[in-house]
Design a protein around this nucleic acid. Structure first.
Lengths: 159, 159
DNA sequence: GATAAAAAGTTATAATATAACAATTATTAC
DNA sequence: GTAATAATTGTTATATTATAACTTTTTATC
């Protein structure tokens, strides 16, 4: 049921799933899922496109919160630490995690045209990284795998 | 002869190799390897650590060039387009390419402690990315694979 | 309810990157 | 060789992204 570039899907379901999941994970870890944190997560989940921190500020203001940068960065940091949000470094942007709690390696397929991004888990990828690292005597802590290209929708539209 | 976290190597050789290579690639492509471009490449190659654009500015000034940000960003952009330099997005930094001209997928192993970074080529990684992408109907254009962790030197020093 | 801890508000600023236009240098055509 | 053209670099200003430091408010604990 995860998003796979197919344009037809019930996105409200994506959002509510993400929020429910967050609620659960916060509870498990004894962390507070405050209004701002929830709002920021919801705003990040407004689409399957990575979104910049500053783009969230106006909406946060509309919702009646303080909308200075630290507000949104603090919420994002919190969400990242719980694995609910990922940073897409090459875009200076953030996206909701579609596999929260999973240990498996994942990568982001990011369309350079429409900006849609899909997170894909892959054991093959994980083992490739593990092999490369162990051969170098390197101990992996974090992985950032961002693949930029064209999504199937944009490829189809090209013809 | 590529750097692999082993601390003992003739780094002057790394630098001169990189500059020679750049010279050759520029010639092949009919591009001008100007003084600034050469200097910036040399400065980026001063170590095997990703370096920020602003860190280069003082050295550029010392060398008697204009040292406003556009100077260095333009040179970096040029070098990136020729595949001589890579951006490490997660650090907002740049590093010299150790496999210029190669088509193979590569990833960066970045030590979170000493900041040393090694670029490793891997067919296994390439095929994992190819598989994941093709399954999604996604056409790959660029890959950013950044693995953060601990290098063998820092692991050894830990005990 | 008092106390301590956590979170959010607030102000200021740091760090990174680019836009826009002018001046210079190199290349090409004649 | 010189004029015209293109490429590169200089320069000024500013946009974008992110964090530091301190205050106030809210929540949890005793």
């Amino acid at each position: 049921m995860t998003f796979t570039f197919q344009s037809k899907h019930d996105h409200h379901h994506c959002i509510s799933d993400a929020l429910d999941n967050a609620e659960k994970i916060c509870a498990e870890r004894g962390q507070r899922f405050t209004k701002i944190r929830k709002l920021v997560l919801e705003l990040i989940w407004q689409s399957h496109r990575p979104i910049g921190a500053y783009q969230l500020l106006p909406e946060i203001k509309k919702a009646g919160f303080n909308s200075a940068p630290p507000t949104v960065y603090r919420a994002i940091e919190f969400l990242q630490e719980l694995g609910l949000v990922h940073q897409i470094s090459s875009l200076n942007a953030f996206i909701g995690c579609t596999h929260p709690g999973h240990q498996c390696s994942s990568c982001f397929l990011i369309c350079g045209q429409c900006s849609l991004a899909v997170e894909v888990e892959s054991d093959l990828l994980g083992s490739a990284i593990a092999k490369v690292s162990s051969e170098m005597g390197f101990k992996v802590e974090r992985e950032h795998v961002e693949i930029v290209g064209k999504c199937p929708n944009c490829l189809k539209a090209e013809v």
